[in-house]
Design a protein around this nucleic acid. Sequence first.
DNA 1: ACTTGTGAAACGTTTCACAGCG
DNA 2: CGCTGTGAAACGTTTCACAAGT
Lengths: 211, 211
Amino acid sequence: MLSEKTVERLSEYRRHLSDLQARGVTHVFSNLLAAETRVTAAQVRRDMMNLGLSGSTATGYSVSDLLEHLAGLLDHPHSTRVALIGTGNLGRALLAFFRARPGKAVIAMAFDSDPEKSNRVCCGCRVYPMDSLEARIREDEIRTAILCVPEQDANAVAQRLVNAGVTGILNFAPTRLKVGDQVYVDTMDISSVIEKVGYYAVRGTRAPGRK
Amino acid sequence: MLSEKTVERLSEYRRHLSDLQARGVTHVFSNLLAAETRVTAAQVRRDMMNLGLSGSTATGYSVSDLLEHLAGLLDHPHSTRVALIGTGNLGRALLAFFRARPGKAVIAMAFDSDPEKSNRVCCGCRVYPMDSLEARIREDEIRTAILCVPEQDANAVAQRLVNAGVTGILNFAPTRLKVGDQVYVDTMDISSVIEKVGYYAVRGTRAPGRK
DNA sequence: ACTTGTGAAACGTTTCACAGCG
DNA sequence: CGCTGTGAAACGTTTCACAAGT
């Protein structure tokens, strides 16, 4: 099982590796990949080790090899199709973002409790009413969801998602979701993050332990 | 200097403490605050220690005392007024978010390079053209900025922000910003995060080292 | 000389465990 | 008792340093 920080780095490596491949580069040394992603070369090599990949001292790592292994880890059929709940300002921004930037992950369906907003297409994605949530998520075997509902609804909706089989939630509501231990939750609390940025901004320093 | 994780927790403590204060609670024990925020009681006490605060064994910590100290750390005049660059979908969502949820931080001004979008009010915030960026940021002594411009513009705009005196950037473009070491950058890479959520979702587990 | 691969050291963070106190 | 405050242990992550390959 890879750690969260490792998975984050893998995702970043992949972006740069795709760039490199598009430019016709077939092999990379750890120090090159490191320079692009602001980690150390030793860290890159350690990550490769954790992945069970190896390179050669003469040519470094094979770009296509790495991309293939990363795709195997990050592009599981159950994780690339995600559901989005709540098509308010932020929800629509995310729909537009994923449409404009078609990566591996795709928002396959959206839900909204407002009858005015559901049963129509928004930013290229079909929006369904909330009462069809469980049925549709189960039918499509969706396991990953983005939660953009108001804070006071977040926990109730999260519970419904989990009941429908979702095991990974990206939560934009500023609340700790109370879900079982088998469900992975990442909460992006924008207010909290802006406070953190402000804290270091006024002190004119990077945080301790940053490169 | 507090670590990033500590600052994140402080921000979360504050939200719960405000709730408690609104409900008339004047003192908390570490285990109560811990239960609300999913950290351990020992962690809460350690954070209080790092802050230089102390409670009493009989009554715990004073809510108002804590809130006061947290405000002193997180609500510096230079960090509560922020600038937002780029009023695309995401930028507008953030403007709406901050307007709807008026916390301590406030978006004081926005900028957009599109003449159609600038020189007007969007979501309650004045949008200025990009060429007035340096002058206005300097004049208002803004130190914190939210960057919502397309990936290819991110580094150039970041450079301009830094030149204008910004020392903290919340970056939504999926790129590492190349800025000096004295500038704090937090990049929220949504594609990367959704890949991480997907990774743990398909494996049906929390990440290692999670409570 | 340049790499990779990796044990071991260093560093940072969290938890344990308990002394001391109301 | 149950609480705080904290040294020390435990754990996780990153970096160092170097053997070995080409």
